[in-house]
């Protein structure tokens, strides 16, 4: 926290700059797709959101593993602070995907493997948040949620490979794959900048939320100490 606190304003500034640059590139500077025309711009929000949904869950799973093995309190708090941000990104990916699906596939929603597994991920995020806050002792809730997070991690590889294992309407990966990305540089760069901006947003929010949680814990301890007299 001693390092994180002075960094935060600069980090926030960098995030805003990155986001503005990424939005300019993706909304104005990048070309429209020859098939999808302007709707392709949804991709610059949808794909980074979906990456973040998986990335944040993986971070939570690693933090939970650290919390369960070494009982490190900061790891528990990191997992707790990440969950709502991850849920928000997952929701964002689902909504933008739905908005993109309507003009492209002709439907808001299909029950295929990718969409269903991401929906399950969203539910697991919600269950994680509910479990964390369900106990009178917050530490107990965080530990229980860590176990749930590790069990739910099974879903992450299923989401990642669902487009390859099953025949789905959702297109397979076109950036992270063997033999280099199959997407043109004019579209790849805005996408990567947006992904970086989303990562920075997560980092900023995570620092703020972890700081809040640590302060709340301190307040709880002080009130408990005062109540004891």
């Amino acid at each position: 926290m001693a390092i994180a606190n002075p960094c935060l304003p600069w980090l926030a500034l960098l995030t805003v700059a990155c986001l503005i640059w990424g939005l300019y590139l993706s909304l104005f500077a990048s070309p429209a797709d020859y098939q999808q025309s302007e709707t392709v711009r949804i991709m610059y929000v949808h794909v980074p959101s979906a990456w973040m949904a998986l990335f944040i869950y993986s971070v939570m799973a690693i933090a939970s593993l650290v919390a369960v093995i070494w009982r490190h309190p900061l790891a528990e708090i990191a997992a707790q602070a990440s969950a709502p941000i991850g849920a928000a990104f997952t929701f964002c990916a689902l909504v933008t995907g739905s908005l993109w699906g309507k003009p492209m596939w002709g439907t808001w929603w299909v029950w295929d493997a990718r969409l269903t597994s991401v929906l399950i991920l969203f539910f697991i995020y919600l269950a994680h948040m509910a479990l964390t806050s369900a106990f009178d002792d917050p530490a107990r809730g965080r530990r229980a949620a860590a176990i749930l997070c590790l069990v739910g991690f099974v879903n992450v590889p299923i989401i990642k490979f669902s487009v390859e294992w099953w025949n789905t309407l959702h297109q397979p990966a076109s950036v992270l794959k063997l033999g280099g990305p199959s997407i043109h540089a004019d579209m790849l760069w805005p996408l990567l900048i947006m992904a970086l901006a989303f990562k920075l947003i997560y980092l900023c929010l995570l620092i703020v939320r972890m700081r809040n949680e640590l302060m709340a814990a301190r307040v709880r301890n002080l009130t408990a100490a005062r109540a004891r007299g």
Binding site: F135, D136, G152
Partner: peptide, 27 residues
């Protein structure tokens, strides 16, 4: 059983068991 054990001692345990278990039941 994981969900039921995790929700022990929680407030509104029954709803919590459903919320934890249902996503795992889907596959």
């Amino acid at each position: 059983s994981i969900g039921a054990a995790l929700a022990l001692g929680a407030r509104s345990g029954t709803v919590l068991v459903a919320l934890i278990s249902l996503p795992l039941f889907i596959p």
